[in-house]
Nucleic acid binder design. Structure first.
Lengths: 224, 224
DNA sequence: ACAATGCTTCGGCTACCATCGAAGCATGAA
DNA sequence: TTCATGCTTCGATGGTAGCCGAAGCATTGT
């Protein structure tokens, strides 16, 4: 059944990413859906078998596009039904998924992952938050020293707080700023977990595969 | 996500069964999908939450129908996509013709003729209907007195309404219930226009030749 | 030739969800 | 009232499908 194909969240994300009519590679679609290439491969095979997408081989890439406008039309219709029940998410902030997921806010991590990180830190008592004021706990200091080799004396600054809550543009929730936020982002880059996108002017932060895994191990919420 | 709702085979079968625009009871939908009532109940709750179907309570039955034509349209579209890959579903046909044409529903006339009767009464302003509530007009009272010797005072009952819309089992449209519906059916029997089938337990109503003619003269829609 | 990249296949794990039995309500009938 | 019917809720189970790690092809670049 075709609907079952569209029903899976990962596949739905892929299809949505293809709704603009352009073709995307398997890897791009994997990133779009937030899954590994091998999982994406499995999904794409099913979508192809279901006649929803068709591949075009080009070198060592495989570009996928929606089969035709009929498919796009049905997807539109489904989105319309979803919108009526309020099950559709409201578009806030940037539309670029990569930008929504992880980006640079001044010098610290923002986007879904940034919000997720602070959420988890709060949940595990690594920090305590009162409104916009955040303070690092003793437990948090041990955590940072152990997993990220960050010591408290690296964070002191004459005019800047160690921790600060920063309202996230796309998520409309807080992520972590301050010298700690900056230090952690810097550490992620040094560990090759993540790097700013090469495109000039882009604020997108790309996580490596291992980086994403390591990050999820420390701050994951199980929803990815 | 809406597509996930349609994606499940059991739910898909239910929705397909509702595609003709008629309403079905929860039990019938369960049988249609080949699952137990409790499983069907769970599915129907989800479909309702997703805005795909809406219920109508009638006695101890719960009739479900597709919310509107948009839903049907999207389902059509999905079926269209499915058809291209070769997997098409088959639709099971109806059943006993005599039962569908005329039968007893509690104590009043149901089936094709029952629906047809209410249709004509509504069309000729003998009754006015708002959803499930039906009221007899002055014109209707004159009509009943003249042609069926039924006077309004025969119809009053402490706990039962004079007119009530009852969802027809086979036609899935409303026919006339209440004390008036019962009185009319009784009158048909007294006039030897129709009689319940002799078979024990059968709900079939057999019309005589003259009865059929007389009935058609009063309530016919010209399609017979 | 070798290495790097992109994608796929295979195997095992896990989580979710459809499913059903049993019991609980609600409505209508006797 | 009591009983029967229709439907729902609860709890437990099992099958399935998504997911990833590791390894295998395929293509391109050096």
């Amino acid at each position: 059944m075709v609907a079952a194909l569209v029903g899976d969240p990962a596949r739905a994300n892929m299809l949505t990413a293809l709704m603009n009519g352009r073709a995307l590679t398997a890897s791009e679609l994997a990133q779009e859906a937030g899954i590994t290439p091998q999982t994406a491969s499995s999904h794409l095979a099913k979508l192809e078998a279901g006649g929803l997408v068709e591949p075009e081989k080009q070198g060592r890439h495989r570009y996928y596009r929606l089969t035709d406008d009929d498919v796009a039309g049905v997807l539109e219709g489904l989105a319309g039904l979803a919108a009526r029940t309020g099950h559709m998410r409201v578009r806030t902030g940037p539309k670029d998924p990569a930008l929504r997921r992880a980006r640079i806010c001044y010098d610290h991590l923002a986007g879904d992952l940034g919000v997720q990180m602070l959420d988890t830190m709060r949940e595990r008592n690594l920090v305590r938050q009162k409104k916009q004021d955040i303070e690092l706990t003793a437990e948090g200091e041990r955590f940072l020293a152990k997993h990220l080799q960050i010591s408290p004396d690296m964070l002191s600054h004459p005019r800047r707080p160690v921790c600060k809550a920063c309202l996230d543009w796309s998520e409309r929730r807080h992520h972590l700023a301050g010298t700690l936020g900056a230090a952690m982002m810097q550490r992620f880059a040094e560990l090759k977990w993540a790097a700013r996108d090469a495109t000039p002017g882009s604020r997108v932060v790309n996580f490596t595969r291992t980086g994403e895994k390591q990050f999820a191990a420390l701050f994951g919420n199980g929803k990815d």
